[in-house]
């Protein structure tokens, strides 16, 4: 018995030893691009990583980790060196505080690339009541304190007499999610600011404004449904009266079961999101560490592959990415080519 164990132990040690010299610890050099960040950008970046690995046998396929935008930023800004990731996927722009954090930790040079657009879509089951909402309706229905008063709305009719008397039930992303940030910023905040008082409050007391405008109710009308967007689709099929909030690519893939809800009369489609006429459109970014561009083999080539892939007919579009307008694409292709560093001056 002991002999068997000894054998297993020795062979396992031998196995582990053969992997050691190649990658080494955090101190040594690295020959593989490491990417962290948003779960929304993850499918696109991993698709580029896979294609890059296939077409360039000389480089190792990059490792893409899905940590969420916020945690990814922390890892990305923690420092320069083989132990820190090279690229950060972000479903929103870098915040000023994050940029300052990066600068403080020695991450001076950062390349900011806008890779495309992701649409946040409100959806309902194909058996649903064909809702037609405005950003105000959505805000009044799911905000914790619409315009400063506690939310008492039980049905959509309470929110807007033109809507059917259906109980408010919204399945959406949890507060840790980048999609939730977008919901707050693109829909709730806009709905909130339709009220001139709130617009005024924004100038006088920004914190209070943020609380009133973006805090979501917690009495069961808004159900946090985890990061698993497939689950939301399933829930909607089971509850035709409920509404879901998720990424546009999931809507496109599940048109058999669900359809988009028009907001302000605009349906979520490829065109409306690409043209930013649907309120739920947001840009997606990747941030690249300038100091790693020469140190990590394959990083520049990976960026070039990304620029190659984000065109309207490219393979990312097949996976649900909405290509940026031509001008923005051209600008970002130039950034990738010249590796222009961001200044951080226009961050908020």
């Amino acid at each position: 018995m002991f002999k068997t164990f000894a054998l297993v132990a020795v062979s396992a040690l031998a196995l582990s030893a053969c992997g050691d010299p190649a990658t080494g610890g955090a101190g040594g050099a690295r020959d593989q691009v490491k990417i962290v960040g948003s779960s929304t950008v993850y499918p696109f970046t991993s698709a580029v990583a896979e294609t890059f690995g296939r077409n360039n046998p000389g480089f190792k396929t990059p490792v893409v980790e899905s940590t969420g935008t916020g945690s990814g930023m922390k890892l990305f800004c923690a420092g320069v060196g083989a132990g820190h990731p090279d690229i950060e996927n972000a479903s929103r722009r870098m915040k000023k505080s994050e940029f300052e954090d990066c600068q403080k930790n020695g991450v001076k040079d950062i390349v900011e690339v806008q890779v495309g657009i992701d649409g946040l879509a409100l959806i309902e089951s194909n058996a649903g009541p064909k809702m037609n909402l405005t950003v105000e309706d959505v805000y009044k229905a799911i905000a914790a304190n619409p315009y400063g008063k506690p939310n008492a709305a039980k049905t959509w009719k309470d929110v807007n007499p033109a809507l059917p008397a259906i109980a408010i039930k919204v399945f959406g992303p949890p507060s840790t999610s980048g999609t939730r940030d977008s919901l707050a910023e693109l829909i709730l905040d806009k709905g909130c600011n339709k009220n001139p008082e709130m617009e005024a409050l924004k100038k006088s007391d920004a914190d209070k404004h943020k609380d009133i405008c973006t805090k979501v109710r917690e009495d069961g009308a808004y159900v946090e449904s985890g990061e698993n967007d497939n689950l939301i689709v399933q829930k909607l099929t089971a509850n035709p009266d409920a509404i879901g909030v998720l990424g546009y690519s999931f809507l496109e893939e599940n048109l058999k079961d669900v359809r988009g809800i028009a907001i302000n009369g605009v349906e979520p489609t490829y065109e409306t999101i690409a043209g930013f006429t649907y309120p739920g459109a947001r840009a997606m970014f990747i941030y690249v560490k300038g100091a790693h561009l020469t140190a990590i083999p394959g990083l520049k080539e990976f960026l070039a592959e990304y620029a190659n892939a984000w065109t309207p007919g490219g393979y990312l579009a097949k996976r649900g990415l909405i290509a940026s307008p031509d001008a923005i694409r051209a600008k970002n292709a130039e950034i990738v080519q010249k590796l222009t560093m961001m200044t951080g001056a226009d961050l908020s």
């Binding site: 582990s16 053969c18 190649a22 190792k60 490792v63 980790e65 899905s66």
Partner: peptide
């Protein structure tokens, strides 16, 4: 500890992603 990642090649050793 970062194992929620897209890794398209099997790990060659215990220090590989």
């Amino acid at each position: 500890i970062g194992m929620r990642a897209f890794i398209p090649a099997p790990p060659a050793g215990i220090t590989d992603p």
